[in-house]
Design a protein around this nucleic acid. Structure first.
Length: 118
DNA sequence: CAAATGACGGGGT
DNA sequence: AACCCCGCCATTT
């Protein structure tokens, strides 16, 4: 694994705003590593804690946490996200609402209302 | 060295 | 929705 890709992945993960989530595939794309979702997972797995990456904001494309139900990791990630206001319904997050970056543009602006008039 | 595995994703049935 | 199959590739067995 080249270090260059890792840094790009770290940067992409860092760019996820608080209260929003992204997916492994999305992060791969943001890092210029199309189709390398698995590499993102591996990279997060081996990322040093002192980097303070918001790893918990990365979930899978189904809007679900990719750790086994009931595992310590799953619990931790769930708790961290809830703390940021991310809502789970039946164990999954509505990516149209909390997903980042938004692709729908209009829908995102309507739901999040970051500018003002919205 | 070959085969299996995995914090994944997308398309087809 | 559930399932299967393929692409992807670093690590592990």
């Amino acid at each position: 694994m080249n270090n260059d890709a890792q840094e790009k992945i770290h940067a992409a993960v860092r760019s996820i705003p608080r209260g929003r989530v992204s997916t492994y595939g999305r992060i791969a794309r943001l890092a210029g590593l199309e189709r390398r979702a698995r590499l993102v997972g591996h990279t997060l797995r081996t990322a040093p804690d002192d980097l303070m990456l918001p790893w918990h904001r990365v979930i899978n494309a189904q809007g679900r946490i990719s750790f086994p139900e009931g595992s310590a990791h799953q619990c931790e990630q769930y708790a961290l996200l809830q703390e940021e206001g991310v809502v789970f319904v039946n164990g999954s997050v509505d990516l149209a609402r909390f997903g980042w970056p938004a692709d729908g543009g209009d829908l995102d602006r309507y739901l999040w209302d970051y500018s003002s008039d919205g």
